[in-house]
Write a protein that binds this DNA or RNA. Sequence first.
DNA 1: GCTGACAATTGGTATAGACAACTAGTTTTT
DNA 2: AAAAACTAGTTGTCTATACCAATTGTCAGC
Lengths: 240, 240
Amino acid sequence: MIDKRSPVPIYYQLEHVIRQQIDTGELQPGDLIPSEREYAEQLDVSRMTVRQAITNLVNEGLLYRQKGRGTFVAEQKLEQNLSGLTSFTEDMRSRGMVPGSTLLAFQIVPADKKVADRLSLAEHAPVYEIKRIRLADEVPMALETVYMSANLIKGLSEAIITASLYHHIEEELGLEIGRAVQSMESAIVSEAERPHLLVPKGAPVLLIERHTFLKDGTPLEYVKSSYRADRYKFTIDINR
Amino acid sequence: MIDKRSPVPIYYQLEHVIRQQIDTGELQPGDLIPSEREYAEQLDVSRMTVRQAITNLVNEGLLYRQKGRGTFVAEQKLEQNLSGLTSFTEDMRSRGMVPGSTLLAFQIVPADKKVADRLSLAEHAPVYEIKRIRLADEVPMALETVYMSANLIKGLSEAIITASLYHHIEEELGLEIGRAVQSMESAIVSEAERPHLLVPKGAPVLLIERHTFLKDGTPLEYVKSSYRADRYKFTIDINR
DNA sequence: GCTGACAATTGGTATAGACAACTAGTTTTT
DNA sequence: AAAAACTAGTTGTCTATACCAATTGTCAGC
C-alpha cells in the first residue's frame, strides 16, 4: 500500500490512497477517517507526515477537520459550473440540449470607439464582427455579437466559425486563453432583437458582456449576448 | 513584531506580518523573501513553524517557492471579484456606494416544500425568514429574502441582522462558510415587489438565487434577491 | 576561456516527541 | 437526579534535528 523506499514521497502516496478510497466510495461523505495517530502507527511513519497528506486533502476540500472529534470526508464537491468561460456549445451540451447556430453577419469592419477600447486597439483598426443566433434544440436561445482583432486572428473563415472558433484559436493558432471578465444585467428585449429571438414585446433578456484575455494579457475578444430569460439561467459555483 | 507568549499561533502571526509587508509594498512582486532558516533564527522559532506560515501563503498564491533558490513574492493576484459570495454590504462598498437596509420582516416560519428542500430540512421545520430592502446611497437597490434553519443558527435577533449576519455566523458561532451556488436570471418586476423597488411597471430585474454551504456541506442559507436592472450589474472574473 | 569539483545555501521530506485545546463519554460527587 | 470531575481520544501548535535535492557561485586545473 505504501512503500517507504519509493522515491515518491510518503505523504503523497498516502494522499493518493485516501483520494482513491473516496473515489471508489470506500469512504463516504460524512465518514470519519482514521485518526492521524492511527495512520502513523499503522504505516509506521511519523504523525507529521500523515498530517501533511491530510492537510493537502483538506486544502483541496476533500476532507475537513474538527478539533477534538476527528477528520471527515466532505460532501461531494460540485463541478465548477463556470458556464461563463466555456463556449455556448459546451454550455448547452452540459444542459442536455442540442446547440445550433445561424450566422447573420460575418465581416471585417473598422472598430468603433467602444470596441477599440475593449480590445485595446486603435480606433478604426480592422476587427471581425460576427453576429449569430444561437439555438438550443432548434429554438432561439440568444443573440450574440463577437468582436476580435483581425490582425491577431488572421484568416478566419465562415467554415471555421461554424466548426469551432475556440478550437481554432487554441489548437491551430496555439493561443492560450487566460481569463475572462463577464458582466450580466437584466434588460428588456429591443425591437431590433425581437424578431430573432421570437419573444413578445417587453420580454426580459439577460444581457451578458464578456471580455476574454490571453495568458499574456492581450485582449482576445469582446462578446455581447442577449439571452432569452424564459429559457436561460446562469449558474455559478463559488468556492471560498 | 512576534509575541511568543501570545495565544495567537506563531505561524499565524508571521503570516500576518508577511502579508502586511506585501500589502504595504515593502515586499514587491518578484522579491526574494528571507529564507526559512533566516526567519527561524531571527525570530527564535523552529524552521517548521516558519514553514507552516509560508506554506499557507504559498497556498493562497501570495508567494511561490523554488527549490534551491528561495521563496518569492508572487505577481499581484487579480482581485477575485466574487461579488456573489461577499455580502451585499461589501459589494456596495466596493462599488463606492453607501449600503443600507430596511427590515420588512423577521420571523420564524415553518419551511415550505421548496425551502425545506433547499436547506435539506424536513418540511415544516422552523426557519428564519428575513425580508429586507437593500439600499445603496439611500435608494432601493434590491429586495432580499433569506431563509436559514432556526435550529442551526440559534438566537438570531434583529440587532444581529442589522449589524452583520455573516460576522455573527463566522466569528461568534464559529461556522465556516465553504461555498455558494448562485444562479441569475432576468425577469420583469412583480407587482408585489414594485412598490418597494420604486420602478415603473414592466421594469426588468435581475433575479439572483443563492445557496450557501458550510465547509462540511451543511446548507446554511437560501437567499432570493431581485436587483433593479437600472442600477445593478453583476460582474465576475473567471480564471482558467 | 572552459570545465569539473566542491561548497554553501535554498527548499523538500521525514522523524520523534511534547503539550495545548477541544470533544465525548464515564465516573464521582453533591 | 443533576452537576462536577475525570479520562481517553482527537486535532492544533511547536520544537529540534536530520538528510535529500536543486541551484548558484567559487576555485582549481586543464
